[in-house]
Nucleic acid binder design. Structure first.
Length: 343
DNA sequence: AATACGGGGCA
DNA sequence: TGCCCAGTATT
Protein backbone atom coordinates (compact mmCIF):
# COMPACT_ATOMS: atom_id res chain seq x y z
CA UNK A 1 0.00 0.00 0.00
CA UNK A 2 2.92 2.29 0.66
CA UNK A 3 3.91 2.42 -3.00
CA UNK A 4 0.28 3.07 -3.95
CA UNK A 5 -0.01 6.09 -1.67
CA UNK A 6 3.22 7.64 -2.90
CA UNK A 7 2.28 7.24 -6.57
CA UNK A 8 -1.26 8.38 -5.87
CA UNK A 9 -0.35 11.57 -4.00
CA UNK A 10 2.30 12.44 -6.55
CA UNK A 11 -0.23 12.13 -9.33
CA UNK A 12 -2.91 14.02 -7.37
CA UNK A 13 -0.87 17.09 -6.56
CA UNK A 14 0.13 17.40 -10.18
CA UNK A 15 -3.21 16.66 -11.87
CA UNK A 16 -6.04 17.60 -9.50
CA UNK A 17 -8.78 19.91 -10.68
CA UNK A 18 -8.91 23.34 -9.13
CA UNK A 19 -12.15 23.22 -7.14
CA UNK A 20 -13.27 25.79 -4.57
CA UNK A 21 -14.13 23.33 -1.79
CA UNK A 22 -10.59 21.98 -1.90
CA UNK A 23 -9.19 25.28 -0.72
CA UNK A 24 -10.91 25.25 2.65
CA UNK A 25 -11.00 23.30 5.88
CA UNK A 26 -14.25 24.94 6.87
CA UNK A 27 -16.56 22.01 7.71
CA UNK A 28 -19.67 23.93 6.69
CA UNK A 29 -18.37 24.52 3.19
CA UNK A 30 -17.07 20.98 2.87
CA UNK A 31 -20.37 19.56 4.10
CA UNK A 32 -22.31 21.75 1.67
CA UNK A 33 -20.15 20.65 -1.25
CA UNK A 34 -20.48 16.97 -0.33
CA UNK A 35 -24.26 17.09 -0.11
CA UNK A 36 -24.48 18.86 -3.46
CA UNK A 37 -22.11 16.40 -5.09
CA UNK A 38 -23.99 13.26 -4.00
CA UNK A 39 -24.88 11.49 -7.27
CA UNK A 40 -24.11 14.74 -9.06
CA UNK A 41 -21.32 15.69 -11.45
CA UNK A 42 -18.88 18.40 -10.45
CA UNK A 43 -19.78 20.48 -13.51
CA UNK A 44 -23.43 20.40 -12.58
CA UNK A 45 -22.97 21.03 -8.84
CA UNK A 46 -20.40 23.80 -8.99
CA UNK A 47 -22.78 26.67 -9.73
CA UNK A 48 -25.15 25.53 -6.99
CA UNK A 49 -22.27 25.45 -4.52
CA UNK A 50 -21.27 29.02 -5.38
CA UNK A 51 -24.83 30.25 -5.29
CA UNK A 52 -25.51 28.63 -1.89
CA UNK A 53 -22.41 30.21 -0.38
CA UNK A 54 -23.40 33.57 -1.77
CA UNK A 55 -26.85 33.37 -0.20
CA UNK A 56 -25.75 31.56 2.95
CA UNK A 57 -22.10 32.36 3.70
CA UNK A 58 -22.28 30.60 7.06
CA UNK A 59 -24.13 27.77 8.74
CA UNK A 60 -26.12 30.35 10.69
CA UNK A 61 -27.36 32.06 7.53
CA UNK A 62 -28.58 28.72 6.22
CA UNK A 63 -30.27 27.91 9.53
CA UNK A 64 -32.12 31.22 9.45
CA UNK A 65 -33.51 30.68 5.94
CA UNK A 66 -36.92 29.20 5.16
CA UNK A 67 -37.22 25.76 3.62
CA UNK A 68 -38.82 27.32 0.56
CA UNK A 69 -35.81 29.58 -0.01
CA UNK A 70 -33.49 26.60 0.25
CA UNK A 71 -35.56 24.48 -2.12
CA UNK A 72 -35.76 27.35 -4.58
CA UNK A 73 -31.97 27.61 -4.70
CA UNK A 74 -31.80 23.84 -5.09
CA UNK A 75 -34.32 23.85 -7.95
CA UNK A 76 -33.12 21.84 -10.93
CA UNK A 77 -30.50 19.84 -9.06
CA UNK A 78 -32.74 16.88 -8.21
CA UNK A 79 -32.92 14.59 -5.17
CA UNK A 80 -34.67 17.31 -3.20
CA UNK A 81 -34.50 15.43 0.10
CA UNK A 82 -30.87 16.54 0.11
CA UNK A 83 -32.00 20.16 0.33
CA UNK A 84 -34.59 19.46 3.02
CA UNK A 85 -32.05 17.50 5.08
CA UNK A 86 -29.41 20.17 4.54
CA UNK A 87 -31.73 22.81 5.95
CA UNK A 88 -32.90 20.56 8.79
CA UNK A 89 -29.32 19.75 9.76
CA UNK A 90 -28.23 23.39 9.69
CA UNK A 91 -31.01 24.24 12.12
CA UNK A 92 -30.18 21.18 14.20
CA UNK A 93 -26.50 22.11 14.59
CA UNK A 94 -27.30 25.72 15.42
CA UNK A 95 -30.12 24.99 17.85
CA UNK A 96 -29.18 21.66 19.41
CA UNK A 97 -25.38 21.56 19.12
CA UNK A 98 -24.79 25.16 20.09
CA UNK A 99 -23.62 25.94 16.55
CA UNK A 100 -20.61 23.62 16.84
CA UNK A 101 -20.12 21.48 13.75
CA UNK A 102 -19.52 17.80 14.66
CA UNK A 103 -15.79 17.10 14.28
CA UNK A 104 -15.46 13.34 13.98
CA UNK A 105 -16.76 10.48 11.83
CA UNK A 106 -19.21 8.99 14.34
CA UNK A 107 -20.79 12.31 15.27
CA UNK A 108 -21.06 13.35 11.63
CA UNK A 109 -22.77 10.07 10.82
CA UNK A 110 -25.65 11.06 13.14
CA UNK A 111 -26.60 14.02 10.95
CA UNK A 112 -29.58 13.72 8.61
CA UNK A 113 -28.44 13.38 5.02
CA UNK A 114 -24.92 12.35 6.05
CA UNK A 115 -24.10 8.69 5.41
CA UNK A 116 -20.86 6.75 5.58
CA UNK A 117 -19.33 8.30 2.51
CA UNK A 118 -20.12 11.91 3.41
CA UNK A 119 -19.16 11.47 7.07
CA UNK A 120 -15.79 10.07 6.01
CA UNK A 121 -15.29 12.82 3.45
CA UNK A 122 -15.94 15.62 5.95
CA UNK A 123 -13.97 13.91 8.74
CA UNK A 124 -10.92 13.41 6.55
CA UNK A 125 -11.02 16.66 4.55
CA UNK A 126 -11.74 18.98 7.48
CA UNK A 127 -10.20 17.11 10.40
CA UNK A 128 -7.72 14.63 8.85
CA UNK A 129 -9.41 11.66 10.49
CA UNK A 130 -8.21 8.39 8.94
CA UNK A 131 -11.48 6.97 7.60
CA UNK A 132 -11.98 5.80 4.01
CA UNK A 133 -14.42 7.82 1.88
CA UNK A 134 -15.78 5.27 -0.56
CA UNK A 135 -17.91 6.60 -3.39
CA UNK A 136 -18.64 5.24 -6.84
CA UNK A 137 -15.20 6.28 -8.09
CA UNK A 138 -13.40 4.41 -5.34
CA UNK A 139 -15.43 1.24 -5.85
CA UNK A 140 -14.51 1.32 -9.51
CA UNK A 141 -10.83 2.06 -8.92
CA UNK A 142 -10.27 -0.63 -6.30
CA UNK A 143 -12.37 -3.28 -7.99
CA UNK A 144 -10.12 -2.94 -11.01
CA UNK A 145 -6.91 -2.55 -9.05
CA UNK A 146 -7.43 -5.83 -7.16
CA UNK A 147 -9.78 -7.67 -9.52
CA UNK A 148 -12.70 -7.73 -7.08
CA UNK A 149 -15.89 -9.11 -8.62
CA UNK A 150 -18.16 -8.77 -5.58
CA UNK A 151 -21.22 -6.74 -6.72
CA UNK A 152 -20.55 -3.31 -5.25
CA UNK A 153 -24.06 -2.65 -3.90
CA UNK A 154 -23.97 -5.56 -1.46
CA UNK A 155 -23.08 -5.29 2.22
CA UNK A 156 -20.38 -7.86 1.58
CA UNK A 157 -18.70 -5.49 -0.84
CA UNK A 158 -19.10 -2.57 1.55
CA UNK A 159 -17.16 -4.41 4.25
CA UNK A 160 -14.59 -5.72 1.80
CA UNK A 161 -13.83 -2.34 0.27
CA UNK A 162 -13.91 -0.54 3.62
CA UNK A 163 -11.19 -2.89 4.88
CA UNK A 164 -9.00 -2.57 1.81
CA UNK A 165 -9.26 1.20 1.45
CA UNK A 166 -8.68 1.63 5.21
CA UNK A 167 -5.22 0.19 4.78
CA UNK A 168 -4.38 2.97 2.35
CA UNK A 169 -5.76 5.89 4.37
CA UNK A 170 -3.41 6.89 7.15
CA UNK A 171 -3.76 9.74 9.62
CA UNK A 172 -1.08 11.96 8.18
CA UNK A 173 -2.70 12.63 4.81
CA UNK A 174 -6.15 11.12 5.16
CA UNK A 175 -7.84 14.02 3.37
CA UNK A 176 -5.49 14.06 0.41
CA UNK A 177 -5.52 10.29 0.07
CA UNK A 178 -9.32 10.16 -0.02
CA UNK A 179 -9.54 12.98 -2.52
CA UNK A 180 -6.80 11.44 -4.62
CA UNK A 181 -8.56 8.07 -4.93
CA UNK A 182 -11.79 9.76 -5.93
CA UNK A 183 -10.07 12.10 -8.35
CA UNK A 184 -8.18 9.29 -10.00
CA UNK A 185 -11.44 7.37 -10.37
CA UNK A 186 -13.20 10.39 -11.84
CA UNK A 187 -10.49 11.50 -14.28
CA UNK A 188 -8.45 8.42 -15.19
CA UNK A 189 -10.20 5.25 -14.03
CA UNK A 190 -13.40 6.26 -15.82
CA UNK A 191 -16.40 3.96 -16.26
CA UNK A 192 -15.83 3.74 -20.01
CA UNK A 193 -12.52 4.05 -21.81
CA UNK A 194 -10.30 4.38 -18.75
CA UNK A 195 -7.07 6.24 -19.43
CA UNK A 196 -4.77 3.47 -18.24
CA UNK A 197 -1.81 4.90 -20.14
CA UNK A 198 -1.74 7.86 -17.78
CA UNK A 199 -2.61 5.98 -14.61
CA UNK A 200 -0.01 6.14 -11.85
CA UNK A 201 -1.23 2.80 -10.48
CA UNK A 202 -1.31 0.86 -13.73
CA UNK A 203 2.01 -0.78 -12.88
CA UNK A 204 0.21 -2.84 -10.23
CA UNK A 205 -3.35 -2.92 -11.58
CA UNK A 206 -4.99 -6.33 -11.93
CA UNK A 207 -7.51 -5.22 -14.56
CA UNK A 208 -4.87 -3.47 -16.66
CA UNK A 209 -2.63 -6.51 -16.64
CA UNK A 210 -5.49 -8.86 -17.59
CA UNK A 211 -7.21 -6.28 -19.83
CA UNK A 212 -10.49 -6.67 -17.90
CA UNK A 213 -11.21 -2.99 -17.17
CA UNK A 214 -14.55 -3.14 -18.94
CA UNK A 215 -15.84 -5.97 -16.71
CA UNK A 216 -15.41 -4.03 -13.49
CA UNK A 217 -16.97 -2.97 -11.24
CA UNK A 218 -19.76 -5.57 -11.11
CA UNK A 219 -23.21 -4.11 -10.54
CA UNK A 220 -26.56 -5.69 -10.00
CA UNK A 221 -29.26 -5.56 -12.65
CA UNK A 222 -31.20 -2.35 -12.82
CA UNK A 223 -34.73 -2.05 -11.51
CA UNK A 224 -37.79 -1.84 -13.67
CA UNK A 225 -38.95 1.53 -14.93
CA UNK A 226 -42.47 2.46 -13.86
CA UNK A 227 -44.79 4.47 -16.05
CA UNK A 228 -47.07 7.14 -14.59
CA UNK A 229 -49.58 9.33 -16.34
CA UNK A 230 -49.90 12.92 -15.12
CA UNK A 231 -52.62 15.32 -16.26
CA UNK A 232 -51.76 18.88 -15.33
CA UNK A 233 -54.38 21.61 -15.43
CA UNK A 234 -53.48 25.16 -16.30
CA UNK A 235 -56.09 27.30 -14.63
CA UNK A 236 -55.52 30.97 -15.32
CA UNK A 237 -57.10 33.57 -13.07
CA UNK A 238 -56.56 37.27 -12.63
CA UNK A 239 -54.04 36.55 -9.87
CA UNK A 240 -52.06 34.06 -11.97
CA UNK A 241 -51.97 30.33 -12.63
CA UNK A 242 -52.97 27.96 -9.87
CA UNK A 243 -50.24 25.81 -8.31
CA UNK A 244 -50.47 23.03 -5.77
CA UNK A 245 -47.89 22.01 -3.16
CA UNK A 246 -46.88 18.34 -3.28
CA UNK A 247 -47.28 17.10 0.27
CA UNK A 248 -47.39 13.32 -0.11
CA UNK A 249 -44.43 10.99 0.23
CA UNK A 250 -43.51 10.85 -3.40
CA UNK A 251 -41.28 12.56 -5.91
CA UNK A 252 -40.83 16.35 -5.64
CA UNK A 253 -41.98 16.62 -2.03
CA UNK A 254 -42.52 20.25 -0.99
CA UNK A 255 -42.26 21.50 -4.55
CA UNK A 256 -45.12 23.17 -6.42
CA UNK A 257 -46.86 21.95 -9.56
CA UNK A 258 -50.09 22.55 -11.43
CA UNK A 259 -53.18 20.78 -10.09
CA UNK A 260 -52.68 17.14 -10.98
CA UNK A 261 -54.90 14.19 -11.84
CA UNK A 262 -52.82 11.05 -12.12
CA UNK A 263 -54.60 8.79 -14.58
CA UNK A 264 -54.05 7.19 -17.94
CA UNK A 265 -56.54 8.43 -20.54
CA UNK A 266 -58.96 10.16 -18.18
CA UNK A 267 -62.56 10.69 -19.25
CA UNK A 268 -63.62 14.30 -19.71
CA UNK A 269 -66.23 13.69 -17.06
CA UNK A 270 -63.61 12.58 -14.55
CA UNK A 271 -61.62 15.71 -15.15
CA UNK A 272 -64.64 17.93 -14.75
CA UNK A 273 -65.54 16.24 -11.49
CA UNK A 274 -61.97 16.68 -10.28
CA UNK A 275 -61.89 20.40 -11.04
CA UNK A 276 -65.39 21.12 -9.79
CA UNK A 277 -64.87 19.19 -6.59
CA UNK A 278 -61.58 20.81 -5.80
CA UNK A 279 -62.29 24.39 -6.78
CA UNK A 280 -66.06 24.65 -6.43
CA UNK A 281 -66.44 26.17 -9.86
CA UNK A 282 -69.45 25.53 -12.08
CA UNK A 283 -68.77 26.28 -15.78
CA UNK A 284 -65.61 25.08 -17.44
CA UNK A 285 -64.19 24.18 -20.80
CA UNK A 286 -61.23 21.90 -21.38
CA UNK A 287 -58.68 21.61 -24.15
CA UNK A 288 -55.53 19.55 -24.45
CA UNK A 289 -52.42 21.66 -24.88
CA UNK A 290 -50.21 18.81 -26.08
CA UNK A 291 -51.81 15.97 -28.03
CA UNK A 292 -48.96 13.51 -27.47
CA UNK A 293 -47.82 13.26 -23.86
CA UNK A 294 -44.45 14.73 -22.96
CA UNK A 295 -42.25 12.02 -21.48
CA UNK A 296 -40.28 13.21 -18.49
CA UNK A 297 -37.71 10.62 -17.48
CA UNK A 298 -36.60 10.10 -13.91
CA UNK A 299 -34.11 7.46 -12.83
CA UNK A 300 -36.81 4.85 -12.24
CA UNK A 301 -40.03 6.39 -13.52
CA UNK A 302 -41.22 7.70 -16.85
CA UNK A 303 -43.82 10.39 -16.42
CA UNK A 304 -46.24 10.91 -19.29
CA UNK A 305 -47.34 14.51 -19.01
CA UNK A 306 -50.47 15.93 -20.58
CA UNK A 307 -51.21 19.60 -20.06
CA UNK A 308 -54.80 20.81 -20.18
CA UNK A 309 -56.02 24.35 -20.48
CA UNK A 310 -59.01 24.98 -18.25
CA UNK A 311 -61.21 27.98 -18.80
CA UNK A 312 -63.59 28.65 -15.98
CA UNK A 313 -65.39 31.37 -14.07
CA UNK A 314 -63.78 33.03 -11.11
CA UNK A 315 -62.74 30.71 -8.33
CA UNK A 316 -63.94 32.10 -5.03
CA UNK A 317 -61.54 30.54 -2.60
CA UNK A 318 -58.37 28.50 -3.13
CA UNK A 319 -58.27 25.20 -1.21
CA UNK A 320 -55.48 24.41 1.25
CA UNK A 321 -51.95 23.95 -0.20
CA UNK A 322 -52.85 25.93 -3.32
CA UNK A 323 -51.56 29.29 -4.47
CA UNK A 324 -51.21 31.46 -7.53
CA UNK A 325 -48.00 31.83 -9.48
CA UNK A 326 -47.40 35.10 -11.28
CA UNK A 327 -44.55 37.39 -12.22
CA UNK A 328 -44.17 38.58 -8.65
CA UNK A 329 -43.61 35.24 -6.95
CA UNK A 330 -42.42 32.90 -9.68
CA UNK A 331 -38.86 33.38 -8.48
CA UNK A 332 -39.79 32.27 -4.98
CA UNK A 333 -41.75 29.09 -5.55
CA UNK A 334 -39.73 25.90 -5.98
CA UNK A 335 -41.00 23.83 -8.90
CA UNK A 336 -39.73 20.66 -10.59
CA UNK A 337 -37.89 20.94 -13.88
CA UNK A 338 -40.87 19.80 -15.93
CA UNK A 339 -43.09 22.56 -14.53
CA UNK A 340 -40.42 25.20 -14.84
CA UNK A 341 -40.04 24.36 -18.52
CA UNK A 342 -43.73 24.83 -18.99
CA UNK A 343 -43.93 28.13 -17.14
C1' DA B 1 -31.73 -6.53 0.84
C1' DA B 2 -34.44 -3.87 -2.12
C1' DT B 3 -36.39 0.35 -3.48
C1' DA B 4 -37.26 5.45 -3.84
C1' DC B 5 -35.38 9.62 -4.96
C1' DG B 6 -33.71 14.01 -10.31
C1' DG B 7 -31.54 15.62 -13.71
C1' DG B 8 -27.92 15.89 -17.07
C1' DG B 9 -23.83 14.33 -19.85
C1' DC B 10 -21.86 11.09 -22.76
C1' DA B 11 -20.95 7.32 -26.33
C1' DT C 1 -30.99 4.59 -25.57
C1' DG C 2 -28.67 3.06 -21.57
C1' DC C 3 -25.29 3.99 -18.20
C1' DC C 4 -23.38 6.67 -14.64
C1' DC C 5 -22.60 10.42 -11.49
C1' DA C 6 -18.07 12.98 -4.73
C1' DG C 7 -25.20 8.45 -1.92
C1' DT C 8 -28.86 8.37 1.76
C1' DA C 9 -33.21 7.15 3.85
C1' DT C 10 -36.89 4.17 4.10
C1' DT C 11 -39.22 -0.10 3.90
Amino acid sequence: MQEFSVALLGWYHKNKRDLPWRKTKNPYKIWLSEIILQQTRVDQGLKYYLSFLEHFPTLFDLAKASEQEVLKLWQGLGYYSRARNLHFTAKFIVNELDGKFPDNYNELLQLKGVGKYTAAAIASFAYDEAVPAIDGNVYRLFSRLFGIYTPIHTTKAQKEFFKIVSELIHEKEAGYLNQATMELGAIVCRPRNPDCEDCPLAFKCWAFEKNKQHELPVKKAKIQIKHRYFNYFIIEQEEGKILHLREQKDIWRHLYQFPLLERKNPLLEEIENFIVERFGTSHLTLSKINETPIIHKLSHQHLHLTFWKVTTDKIQELPKWHCFVNEDNVSKLPVPKSIESYI
